[in-house]
Design a protein around this nucleic acid. Structure first.
Length: 459
RNA sequence: GCGCCGGUGCCCGAGCGGCCCAAGGGAACGGCCUGCAAAGCCGUAAAGUCGCGGGUUCAAAUCCCGCCCGGCGCUCCA
C-alpha cells in the first residue's frame, strides 16, 4: 500500500484517497514572468513521476496545475518593457510549456489561469467575509484575518506568536493590518494596472487566494494531494489552508513538497556557462539525464545539480538504451515476454514508500544488468523478461528508452554503408571498414557489431 | 537571530538501531569478447573517523546532547 509523507502531519502515512481508485492532485504552478529555471524542472519531474506512478498503480488521476498570470512581477516586467501584462504572461507561459515538453512532462489535465478565475476568487472572498475572516483596508484591498484560522501555523509547524514575531523583520508591515500575519486576498487597483471589478472595488487577486479558489472549485472539498516546492510551505500554503479552514472547507488530504535544487554556480559557470535557466541546462544535457539525476535523489531532499553528475546520469542511460538495441538486434519480441513479477513488486514497494524513486531506479538498473547478462549467453527467456520489465518500469519513471530515428532515406543510406563495411570486413580490408565507420561517426552515427549483426545509433 | 532540513567513497547519492567491513549510477584499473573499436559482462581497487566531539545501547551511519558547515523558510520565491 502506498504511503506518503504528509507535510501537515510531518510523517509518513497510508495514502487513502477521497474516492477509492481515484486521485485528485493540485500542484502550484509557475508565475509566468520569466523563463523557468532548474528548480521548476525538479518540481515538474517530481510530480510528473508521482502522477505516472499513481496511474501505473491503477488510479484514475486528475492532475491540476495552475498558471499565475497576474502578479507584481508580471506587472513589473510589463512596465519595464512597455508591454501589456497578458502579453508577458502569454510569452512566458509558452516558454514554460515548451521547456517542460522537452523534459517529457505530461501536460496537466487542467491548467487554470488566475485571470480566468476571478469569479471564483470573488466567491471565495465573499465566503470568507461571511465567516468574518476578511476585512477591507480602504485603498489597499481585502485582507484575510488570520485570527479566524484557529490552527494558523499548523503547516509550517510554528505558533502564531512565533510567526508574528518573525513577521516584519524582513519586510515592512502593511499599515492597517490587524496582525502582521494577515495577508492580501484582493489588492486594490493602482493606476495603469490591470484590474477586475468586485464588490470591494476594482483590483486584482492576491496570490494566496487563487489556489484555494481553483483547487476547491475544480477538484472539490477534500481533494487528495496538494503539491509544490517546499519554499511554498510558508506563507503560501499556510495561507491557503487558513482560508479553507476559515470558510469551513476541507482542504487537501495530503501535502507533498519537493526539495530545492542547488547549483554549484561557480563550478558550473566555468565549465558550461551558468545554466540556471532550464533552457540552458537542456541545451547542454539530455532531458532524460536531467530526469534520471533528479530521480536518483529522493524528492523531499535538497539536491545538487552539477555537470559531472549530469554526465554520469547520461552514461547510465546509455546502458538502458543499448540494452534496448541489443534486444531488438537479437530479434526478441520483448513486448510478448512475461514481466518479472518479483522485480515489479520491488519497484512498487519502493514507490509505495513515499515515492522512493532512488530505490525504484535501482530495480531498473538491476534488470538492465540481468538482461544484458542473459543476452551475453543467448538466454532469450531471461533477456526478454528482464528487458521487458526494465523498459516498462523505466517508462513509469518517464525514462523510456527511445529508438534512434531516421528518415527512410537516411536509414537506407546507413544500411548501405553498413553493408559495404561488412563486405570490407569479410575481405579483411579493415582500413576500408574503419574508414566507413569513422565517416558515419562524423555524422553522429555510432556502429556496434554484435553477434546478431551490426546495429547503429546516434551518439 | 528564530525554525525546519541536510552533511555518507573521486563525483552524484540510497540507507535512518542489528541483514552495513554501507545500495544504485558514473569515473578509475584489470580481464573476457572484438580484426580493432563500440557495446556488454566479469572482477579489482575505492568510505575502515558515514562533518566534529561527547553520550545512550549487548549493538549506531542510523537515537540523544553540543559544536562546525550548507540549504530553505521567517509575507507573494519551485
Amino acid at each position: 500500500m502506498l504511503h506518503v509523507h504528509d507535510n501537515l502531519q510531518r510523517r509518513k502515512v497510508p495514502f487513502e484517497p477521497r474516492e477509492p481508485g481515484r486521485v485528485s492532485m493540485y500542484v502550484c504552478g509557475p508565475t509566468v514572468y520569466d523563463t523557468p529555471h532548474v528548480g521548476h524542472a525538479r518540481r515538474e519531474v517530481v510530480f510528473d513521476v508521482m502522477r505516472r506512478y499513481l496511474a501505473h498503480a491503477g488510479f484514475e488521476v486528475t492532475y491540476v496545475a495552475n498558471i499565475t498570470d497576474i502578479d507584481d512581477k508580471i506587472i513589473g516586467r510589463a512596465a519595464e518593457e512597455g508591454r501589456t501584462e497578458p502579453d508577458v504572461a502569454a510569452e512566458f507561459t509558452d516558454v514554460y510549456y515548451r521547456e517542460m515538453d522537452r523534459l517529457g512532462i505530461a501536460r496537466p489535465d487542467l491548467s487554470p489561469r488566475a485571470t480566468e478565475f476571478v469569479e471564483g476568487m470573488i466567491a471565495t472572498i465573499t465566503e470568507l467575509f461571511q465567516h468574518d475572516a476578511a476585512y477591507v483596508i480602504e485603498g489597499k484591498g481585502v485582507y484575510f484575518d488570520t485570527s479566524a484560522a484557529d490552527e494558523y501555523g499548523q503547516l509550517v509547524g510554528r505558533s502564531r506568536d512565533e510567526l508574528a514575531e518573525g513577521a516584519g523583520q524582513r519586510v515592512e508591515i502593511e499599515e492597517g493590518k490587524r496582525s502582521p500575519l494577515d495577508f492580501a486576498l484582493w489588492k486594490s487597483a493602482k493606476p495603469g494596472e490591470p484590474s477586475w471589478p468586485t464588490p470591494w472595488g476594482n483590483g486584482r487577486p492576491g496570490w494566496h487566494t487563487e489556489c484555494v479558489a481553483m483547487s476547491l472549485s475544480i477538484l472539490g472539498d477534500g481533494f487528495d494531494i496538494h503539491g509544490g516546492g517546499d519554499d511554498l510551505v510558508f506563507p503560501h500554503h499556510e495561507n491557503e489552508l487558513a482560508q479553507a479552514d476559515a470558510s469551513g472547507h476541507r482542504f487537501a488530504r495530503y501535502w507533498l513538497h519537493n526539495g530545492m535544487v542547488n547549483v554549484d554556480g561557480e563550478k558550473m559557470s566555468k565549465s558550461l556557462g551558468n545554466f540556471t535557466t532550464l533552457a540552458e541546462l537542456l541545451d547542454h544535457h539530455a532531458p532524460r539525464a536531467v530526469r534520471l539525476l533528479m530521480l536518483q535523489t529522493h524528492y523531499r531532499r535538497t539536491m545538487e545539480i552539477g555537470h559531472d553528475a549530469l554526465v554520469a546520469a547520461a552514461e547510465g542511460l546509455k546502458r538502458l538504451d543499448s540494452m534496448h538495441r541489443r534486444l531488438a538486434a537479437a530479434g526478441l519480441d520483448v513486448a510478448a515476454a512475461p514481466l518479472d513479477a518479483d522485480a515489479v513488486a520491488r519497484f512498487d514497494a519502493a514507490m509505495d514508500d513515499d515515492f522512493s524513486t532512488p530505490a525504484a531506479v535501482e530495480v531498473v538498473f538491476g534488470l538492465v544488468r540481468r538482461a544484458n547478462q542473459a543476452l551475453d549467453v543467448d538466454d532469450d527467456i531471461t533477456a526478454g523478461s528482464a528487458g521487458h520489465t526494465a523498459l516498462q518500469l523505466a517508462d513509469v519513471l518517464g525514462l523510456a528508452a527511445g529508438a534512434s530515428t531516421a528518415s527512410a532515406g537516411e536509414a537506407d543510406g546507413i544500411a548501405a554503408s553498413i553493408g559495404l563495411r561488412n563486405q570490407a570486413r569479410a575481405a579483411r580490408d579493415f582500413a576500408e571498414a574503419d574508414r566507413i565507420r569513422d565517416e558515419l561517426a562524423e555524422r553522429g552515427i555510432i556502429l556496434e557489431d554484435t553477434a546478431d549483426g551490426t546495429t547503429w545509433h546516434r551518439a
